[in-house]
């Protein structure tokens, strides 16, 4: 039977270096995808990925085994990416605006292709339209979906990570879906 996350942390603290490998391999895929989809920049995502695991290794000593490891990991990741956004805004506000403008133009091209109804788009075009519509969401809206999708945590737990009431988390998700539906049109 596979060890639980908490058992792996305990094993690591007791000297089983392989337990850390197992813990990392469990979460590196979802964590990286979350960071990449949120940061939208693979260099930044790579750096954040390193940073999160370094912090996790450093702080394992203070991780209480009664806490859920995945919630703790995604809390560290959430703080890392918020710091990244803040630093990014400070450093290069102008180029960020430029990049945002570009992606918006692309999304508009894909989403406002009025003559062809949604059903007529082939799969690749449809995937591109979903991607573009997703890109149009606010960072908050993208994050709530990404957290729920990649962490596997409940909305109650995610609300805890984001330090918001669960009603706010669900309302944010609901607004994201309404916006996506508006962009994509009805799906038959």
């Amino acid at each position: 039977m596979a060890l639980t996350d908490a058992e792996l942390v305990k094993a690591f603290k007791e000297g089983d270096a392989g337990a850390l490998d197992e813990l990392i391999s469990r979460y590196k895929g979802p964590l990286y995808a979350y960071l990449l989809k949120l940061a939208r920049d693979s260099n930044a995502a790579d750096d954040l990925f390193q940073e999160v695991f370094v912090k996790v290794i450093k702080k394992l000593g203070s991780y209480g085994e009664e806490d859920k490891f995945s919630a703790w990991l995604f809390t560290v990741a959430h703080h890392a990416i918020m710091d990244h956004f803040r630093a990014q805004t400070r450093r290069r506000e102008e180029s960020l605006y430029a990049a945002h403008g570009d992606s918006r133009a692309l999304a508009d091209t894909l989403a406002c292709d009025e003559p062809s109804p949604a059903a007529a788009l082939d799969a690749a075009e449809r995937a591109g339209a979903i991607e573009a519509a997703f890109e149009k969401l606010s960072p908050d809206q993208r994050e709530i979906f990404l957290l729920r999708h990649y962490s596997g945590l409940s909305f109650r737990e995610i609300a805890g990570i984001l330090k918001i009431p669960i009603g706010t988390a669900l309302a944010r998700m609901s607004r994201a879906l309404a916006k996506l539906r508006g962009e994509l049109g009805n799906i038959s």
Binding site: G29, Y32, K37, F49, H149, L177, I187
Partner: peptide, 27 residues
């Protein structure tokens, strides 16, 4: 409609599996 969008979005993210970088020695 919103449920359909959520299903479709989830399906799309299911197949998105970027390869994470190696944890660097410097890190």
């Amino acid at each position: 409609g919103e449920l359909a969008v959520l299903k479709e979005l989830t399906a799309q993210f299911e197949i998105f599996k970027p390869e994470p970088p190696l944890l660097s020695a410097a890190g």
